[in-house]
Write a protein that binds this DNA or RNA. Sequence first.
DNA 1: GATGAATGAGACTTCATTCAT
DNA 2: TATGAATGAAGTCTCATTCAT
Lengths: 213, 213, 213, 213
Amino acid sequence: MTVEERRRVKRLPREVRERQILDAAVRVFSDHGYHNASMDEVSDVAGVSKPMIYAYLGSKEDLFAACIHREATQLLAAVAAGVRTELPADMQLWHGLGAFFEYVGAHRESWRVLHRQAISQGGPFSEELLDMRRQAISLVDTLLVRVATKEGLGRGATESLAAALVGAAESLADWWLDNPDVPSRAVASRLMNLAWIGFGGLVDGRTWHPSAD
Amino acid sequence: MTVEERRRVKRLPREVRERQILDAAVRVFSDHGYHNASMDEVSDVAGVSKPMIYAYLGSKEDLFAACIHREATQLLAAVAAGVRTELPADMQLWHGLGAFFEYVGAHRESWRVLHRQAISQGGPFSEELLDMRRQAISLVDTLLVRVATKEGLGRGATESLAAALVGAAESLADWWLDNPDVPSRAVASRLMNLAWIGFGGLVDGRTWHPSAD
Amino acid sequence: MTVEERRRVKRLPREVRERQILDAAVRVFSDHGYHNASMDEVSDVAGVSKPMIYAYLGSKEDLFAACIHREATQLLAAVAAGVRTELPADMQLWHGLGAFFEYVGAHRESWRVLHRQAISQGGPFSEELLDMRRQAISLVDTLLVRVATKEGLGRGATESLAAALVGAAESLADWWLDNPDVPSRAVASRLMNLAWIGFGGLVDGRTWHPSAD
Amino acid sequence: MTVEERRRVKRLPREVRERQILDAAVRVFSDHGYHNASMDEVSDVAGVSKPMIYAYLGSKEDLFAACIHREATQLLAAVAAGVRTELPADMQLWHGLGAFFEYVGAHRESWRVLHRQAISQGGPFSEELLDMRRQAISLVDTLLVRVATKEGLGRGATESLAAALVGAAESLADWWLDNPDVPSRAVASRLMNLAWIGFGGLVDGRTWHPSAD
DNA sequence: GATGAATGAGACTTCATTCAT
DNA sequence: TATGAATGAAGTCTCATTCAT
């Protein structure tokens, strides 16, 4: 084997190898789930031998965590980019939701790994996920607060609403995975309506209470 | 002869053993997830040897499916019992949500198995789950239709809203599992407000549209 | 359950139960082979519970040995009945072979158990089989001796020829199981020709020797 | 570093390990039969861990099939090498039989695996075996045809005789396994006489028919 | 006499992980 | 750097066999 040949197939810089591996891992985890995914398949898909994976990214658990971390960061970045702070609050929310569903639609595998797989594995993995959710909630909260404090809604209430909204978005995205015919804008619009009108009602003081109980 | 000894020696009828096994399985699947759960642990917790499990409930997959089926049936029954059709629509929804969150709160393990575990395993398991969801959606739909048709909202729209509502409830329940301090009534109330006000807006024709895009 | 009912389905005399069980066992062993046969299936086919089998016929190994013994005895009896000592030697052999192939053809399962299964299990089972073969060989030998001593062939040679003949018959029967279209008389005739002519040659002193080696 | 240590540590090429494993498997299958043989014992005897066996040779069934294939190929090669086509027909047959019994005598384990085990397992395994037998029969047939057509025996009859001869050889070999005192040449000679004289009779038109029936 | 209930033991198979080259 | 070779440990499942009724 000549030097030239060796260079052609091997000795890629570490950074490149890591990306190859993570790409393959996301795909495999998404396809088969965390447990059914085998390191053998990851190494096959990545075109990299198993010892390399262990050398670069550690154990299977570590590898999965790295996947979640990378995908979560990308998703959050996409959403944050969608929200432009110079717009009015409702348009910010609208664009945020739009960016979210667009990202999920374009990266189904990422979302599957992030939400379905990570959520069903206990313990270590949830951390990354909870952290991302916390960031998302805070993003929405600052948005709601701007509207609510102008009106009369107290702090604290907004955060729980933000949580509900984020949860609803996650759930809707998850549902969407199984119903892919609906266009992404329609999904976003559906949620926007429920949220904005409902929220508007709360802000205006129109709330519902059990008539008798 | 001590109680312990009697327990070890008694030949219980099949029906009883099956319940014991299912109880144990729900607990174990809930604690460790489908894949990390071992039949050994199920048999330990059930106080029954593994061969009995295979004889009565079949393979691990069969056992899991049986768990889902039983728990889903119980949950639906609880919700249906909560909805009393002689009440006005909003109170029906309120009681239905109340029953739902109460059940989830009282049977966290059941819910974990049902929602988190079953959803993250592909294929065969989803069927049972989808079926349950279909029933739930139809339950809510009949409810919304009664209100909507009196007013002006068209058919079809209600079903998608029902789906959104069910999804939101699931998501909220799931979130609640990780935030157990909130009392169940508060959670139900939160969702009821969002839903009823938002829904009311739609019925009244107050909808949101992007101002410019 | 009335006394009448109990009597109708249960409490058969031991002898009958044993036959039921053996019949079932022969069939199951023949169908699946000794190892793949399960006591469960035997008990199902026999319509008798497993504890009965153990009570009446002992362990799986014992049961198998009992099968071999019964079938071997029947086969030998059938062959012996075919050979009528008042006939000339060649007709005796002819009728013996005829009875043998007829029996095998009519009791394929028995033969499968006897020959294929018993032969592939080492140790204890071979005993029964070897014994049967010894009896068969002796049967043929007495026959050949009557012809040979009239002529010039020495003792000892006949026995080895008898062994070859029995072996050839077994092998042919086994082959026949996989080629069932050939009628039983044709199979018998084929062997008879080879044997009688070859044997006749030996008796007459026409033998083959390597021309040079 | 002792020999033992080197053996434990050396990374042998796949080819070598496969041979080791097959050797061990033939021995173990031969000793205990297909079903009683455990993969654990194969791995022990081979000096290789079980996962290697599965990686290289597949399941237990695959492993067994591989054994049969290898041994059958070797046996056929040995017989074909014995038959030298420049000799007269009887000498060809004689040398072929000689090679056959010599091989069986020298590789008792191979033969046990080939004939006794493979024959008693149904289905997939028989294929390899049937194929080998077909080749052997055709080998013998071409031989007989050369003699028979010179004389008056029709086609088709030779093939069935070839089949009988092959079957007789198999059966005799099998019998020999249980009577190992007889020297291999004696066994070959015994069969040669029966076959050649009997066959000669048929060629000459001396056939036997029941005198009355 | 008869059986449903029950299990200890062991089989096959897979996988994450690590050497030795 | 890169990998083929190798394995300990664990999991699912089956089966002959025996109690307790």
